[in-house]
């Protein structure tokens, strides 16, 4: 049985039911049909938005980080039904936000990736940070980046890339 998402405001979405949700992803409407327990990460991935990666599904790795109303969240720790009516941004965003565009360039130039599995999550984490706190100092950036795990690069190249993107966004001086 299926019903539309907003009904969860007035009736139970039962365990065996699916909600018909309209998610706003990268400025486009994406319809998903999911049970209450479906995570936002799984809902996006099922619709082919597989740039949101799953490395642990319990909040520890950050590979699934996306922006929800502009702020970085772990999409494995959010239910798809909770995201209705929110603005979502993922690694696939095209055209990219200012921050994402600058970060993509910087990640490429500073060789901030190897296997690339953590990259989407780091890009979104950093995009959220640079939008919300454009003047974050290097120590703050480093602290925020410790939220996500990368097994390939040793981390510092990613930090360097984010700081470079920040410089670009702030007009070359930050």
């Amino acid at each position: 049985m299926t019903y539309t998402g907003h009904r969860v405001d007035s009736a139970w979405l039962e365990p065996d039911e699916h909600a018909d949700l309209d998610l706003l992803v990268n400025g486009r409407s994406v319809r998903v049909q999911v049970p209450a327990r479906c995570t936002l990460a799984d809902a996006l991935r099922e619709r082919g938005l597989t740039g949101t990666r799953l490395g642990c599904e319990q909040g520890s790795c950050g590979a699934c980080t996306i922006l929800l109303d502009g702020l970085p969240v772990r999409s494995c720790l959010t239910l798809a039904v909770q995201a209705e009516g929110c603005e979502l941004e993922t690694a696939e965003q095209a055209p990219p936000s200012r921050e994402l565009g600058a970060l993509r360039r910087a990640f490429h130039e500073h060789r901030a990736l190897q296997c690339g599995f953590c990259t989407s999550g780091f890009l979104m984490l950093a995009a959220g940070l640079l939008r919300d706190e454009p003047d974050a100092g290097a120590a703050r950036v480093r602290e925020v980046l410790s939220a996500n795990l990368c097994r390939c690069t040793g981390g510092v190249p990613i930090l360097r890339a984010v700081l470079a993107a920040q410089r670009e966004l702030n007009g070359g001086h930050a």
Partner: peptide, 18 residues
């Protein structure tokens, strides 16, 4: 020489789960 890493930067790289 630089590697082509575009697919990792726009989320389109496909791992087996994808």
């Amino acid at each position: 020489v630089e590697r082509d890493d575009r697919h990792f930067l726009d989320g389109t790289a496909q791992y087996v789960a994808d």
